[in-house]
Simulated scan of single mutants.
Amino acid sequence: MTFSDLPIYTADDVMGAVPYAAAVDAIEEALRGSVDPADDPARSFVEIDAGQLLLMPSAGGAYAGVKLATVAPDNPARGLPRIQAVYVLFDAATLSPVALLDGSALTTLRTPAVSAAAARHLTPERLDRLVVFGTGPQGGGHVDALGSIRELGEVNIVGRDATKAAALAERLVGKGFDASVGTVDGVREADVIVCATTAETPLFDGALVRENACVLAIGAHTPDHRELDSGLMGRSTVVVEDHDTALREAGDVVLAAADGALDIDDTVPLRDLVNGTSTRTSGRPAVFKGTGMSWQDLAVASVAYERLRSA
């Protein structure tokens, strides 16, 4: 197949082919199958003037793939996405390219899907109050993903920009959610707290989080940035995608360990949680700390390609 023959799937194609519930199932099926996140190649970062270039390769099953992503912190002020990406999917046997997919759409799908896969094993069937920190695609995507696996009650959106928070709440109301703008104090009554921000320091006092609550933190993916404080990390069952990845990229984990509040050996790999070999400890909050890994993109890209090709 020549480059000109490659099918190119847009964001609308990808999002239309894979509902959030299907993306969650793809993540769980990968973890129940041959995928071991510990075998995934480390994400490569290249610092340039405008931000970062990221290379995220993975292989498994019938396909291999590479996401080429950029992070440009100044883009939102220009009206452009902070994160942009393209994804190249290859046949695993021949390593021939089979498709190009919108990588940003894959990120929008797979990150909430991974969080929802963790939440499926950490939360009750009904969530009376969901508090979301973050007004970007990941904030809304987490509501959609959690809504695909759980019955949601009240949804509160918390953001630094009140206009953006109100706009996201309005969009969610249009989808049928009971959504409104909330405040930091809402974490006191939250069943689930989503942290999907670019914050460098903790978003709230971790002591406010209830013992039976679950926190899904995915915003920080550098070792010196965090969304959660050491107190919360130290008193919680902490689930990570992979121990080594968490030590490289998860500031919430790295900084809590440096403070002496968390022992990395006590964290629970997501694969063990999904396969039932580990569970959350009763009487303690649960925290899922995700940074995003290459196998997740491949799992969702494979499903998207199969569905789009058959259609």
Rank of each mutant, 00 (worst) to 15 (best):
D36K: 11
D36E: 08
P37M: 05
P37N: 06
A38P: 03
A38T: 11
A38S: 11
A38Y: 02
D39P: 00
D40C: 10
D40P: 01
P41R: 11
P41V: 12
P41W: 07
A42L: 08
R43G: 07
R43K: 15
R43E: 13
S44I: 08
S44Y: 08
F45I: 01
V46T: 14
E47G: 05
E47V: 11
I48F: 10
I48C: 07
I48V: 14
D49W: 09
A50P: 03
A50D: 14
G51P: 01
Q52W: 09
L53T: 03
L53S: 08
L55T: 12
L55Q: 13
M56S: 04
M56Q: 03
P57N: 09
S58D: 14
S58H: 15
S58Y: 13
S58K: 09
A59Y: 09
A59D: 10
A59V: 15
G60L: 02
G60M: 02
G60I: 01
Y63L: 12
Y63N: 03
A64Q: 10
V66F: 06
V66N: 04
V66L: 13
V66D: 00
V66G: 03
K67E: 04
L68G: 10
L68Y: 14
L68I: 15
A69W: 04
T70F: 04
V71C: 08
V71P: 02
A72Y: 11
A72E: 03
A72M: 07
P73A: 10
P73W: 09
P73Q: 08
P73N: 08
P76G: 12
P76E: 08
A77P: 01
A77S: 15
A77L: 14
A77I: 10
R78C: 09
G79Y: 11
P81D: 12
P81H: 08
R82A: 11
I83E: 02
I83M: 00
I83S: 05
Q84G: 10
A85Q: 01
Y87S: 03
Y87Q: 09
Y87T: 04
V88F: 06
V88Y: 10
V88M: 15
L89D: 01
L89K: 02
F90H: 11
F90G: 00
D91I: 06
D91H: 05
A92N: 13
A92P: 00
A92T: 05
A93N: 07
A93C: 07
T94Q: 14
T94K: 13
L95E: 12
L95T: 15
L95D: 13
S96Q: 14
S96N: 10
P97W: 06
P97S: 07
P97D: 13
V98M: 02
V98L: 09
A99N: 05
A99Y: 06
A99D: 06
A99K: 02
L101N: 02
L101H: 03
D102C: 09
S104Q: 13
A105D: 06
A105F: 04
L106M: 09
L106Y: 04
L106Q: 09
T107L: 13
T108Q: 15
T108A: 15
L109I: 06
L109T: 01
R110D: 02
T111C: 09
P112C: 00
P112I: 01
P112V: 05
A113D: 01
A113N: 10
V114Q: 00
V114R: 00
V114N: 00
V114S: 01
V114P: 01
S115V: 03
A116E: 04
A116P: 00
